[in-house]
Computed example of a mutant assay.
Amino acid sequence: MTYPLQALRTFVEVGQRGSVKAAAQALHVTPGAVSQQIRLLEDRLGVVLLERERLGMRLTKAGASVYPKLLEAFLQIDKAVDTLEATTSRKSLTVSTVATFAASWLVPRLGRFKQHNPDIEVRVEATSELVDLRRARVDIALRHGLGNYPGLDVMHLMAPVLVPVASPAFLKDQQESITDAADCLRFPLLHDSDRADWALWLNAHGVHEDPRAERGSAFEDEFLLIRAAEAGQGLALVAQAYARSEIEAGRLVQVLDKPWPARFAYYLVTRPGAATRPEVKAFMDWICQEAATSMQIDQISASHA
C-alpha cells in the first residue's frame, strides 16, 4: 500500500509544532487544508494519530510511535536534495508564494530584477497548496504569517496596510454615510477566511468588541475579497497595495482614512545557508529593497487618502 507523501509531511509538521494553525503557517496553507491532510492519512491507516486538546494537538500512542522515524526520514530527504542542488551550477531560482501576492505585488516588479540580473531565471510558483520549503525544489518562499518557521531562515519583509473599501455604486445606494469606524458595523462586512481583521481594525480605532464584526461572507483569497467588494456586496478590509489599481481606476473607494497595519506580515523564508548562492542573495537583496519602497509608497498614500 502506498501512502500520500504530502499527508505524511503534514502529520510531521503538526506533531513537531503541536498545533494545526502553526503547521498551516509553516506549510503556507489554511488550517482547513492541514486538517484535511491529517484526516486523509488517518482514514488510509485506519488509526488516530493526533488528538485535539485545549492548547493544541497531541500525538496519540500510535502517532508517537511513528513520528520520530518519519521526522528523520524527511530530514534525510532534505539533506539529499540540498547535496544534489549544491552540485549544480544553475543560474535560476524558484520563488513560492500565494496567487494574490504574486499577481498584485511580485510579478509587476520582476521586470526590474531582470534588468539588473539578466542571467538569472526566476520561476514563480503561485499556489495555495501545501509547500514544504525544506523538501520541495523551492529556493525562496514569501510567506504570510507571524514569522514562526522553525528550522528555517526568516526575514521580515513588510506588513500590509489594511484599508476599508467599497464600490462607488454600493456607497451610492446606502442611505447612511460612513464617518467613523463604528459606522462600518451598519453595513455588510466582507472577510478573509480568518474573519479576524475587521474586529482587530475596529478595536484599533476605538470600537470595542461587537458580534457584528464577524458577520458577513468570507473569502479564501484576497482577490476574491476585492472582487466581491467591486461587485457591491459590502465593505472589505484589504491590503492597500492589492487594491491600489482598483482605487485609482475608480472601481473601489477607500471609505475612511484609517489605515491599519495587519497583524500578519510577509516574510522571506529560506532553507539555512540558501543565501550563500549568489542568485538567491541577489533576489533577497532586491526584494527587500522593493518591499521598503512599497511600504514608503503605502505610507504616503495613506497620509493623502
Rank of each mutant, 00 (worst) to 15 (best):
Q25Y: 01
F223S: 15
Q6T: 09
A181D: 07
D119W: 04
H156L: 12
A182C: 06
H304G: 14
E13P: 01
S294G: 14
S245I: 00
P4T: 04
F101R: 10
P150C: 13
R251I: 11
E53W: 13
W198Y: 06
V131R: 04
A239D: 14
R251W: 06
S89L: 15
G206R: 02
V12N: 09
R54L: 12
V280N: 08
L27N: 05
G234H: 03
I247F: 02
E248H: 14
S19V: 04
A126I: 13
L202F: 05
S104Q: 13
E51H: 07
E246V: 02
V29T: 03
I38L: 11
Y267N: 05
T127P: 00
P68M: 11
A199M: 12
L106Y: 03
V107F: 14
E222S: 09
K114R: 15
G18L: 09
A24N: 06
G151M: 06
D257P: 06
N203V: 10
H116I: 13
S303N: 02
T179E: 04
D132Q: 01
A26F: 03
V81Q: 12
P164R: 00
L27M: 12
V280W: 00
E220M: 13
E85P: 05
V131P: 06
G273S: 10
H304F: 14
S92T: 12
R277E: 05
P168R: 12
G18Q: 04
P31N: 05
L5H: 08
K114W: 05
F170R: 09
N117R: 08
R212M: 03
G232N: 09
F187C: 02
R112V: 05
S217P: 15
Y3D: 04
S303E: 07
S128M: 11
Q37E: 07
E129L: 08
Q6V: 11
S294F: 12
Q36N: 07
S19A: 05
T83Y: 15
A199E: 03
Q174D: 15
A80C: 01
K114F: 15
V20Y: 07
T87G: 13
Q299F: 09
G232A: 07
G63S: 04
G56L: 08
A265T: 06
S177V: 06
D82I: 12
A196I: 07
Q296C: 09
E72T: 11
L235C: 02
M158K: 15
R143M: 04
A302I: 09
M155A: 11
H28N: 07
G151L: 02
Q254H: 13
E246W: 11
E13V: 07
E42R: 01
V207K: 05
V124M: 08
A275I: 15
S167N: 10
V12D: 06
F113T: 00
T127A: 12
Q115R: 06
T88N: 13
A136H: 07
Q115V: 02
F223K: 10
G273A: 01
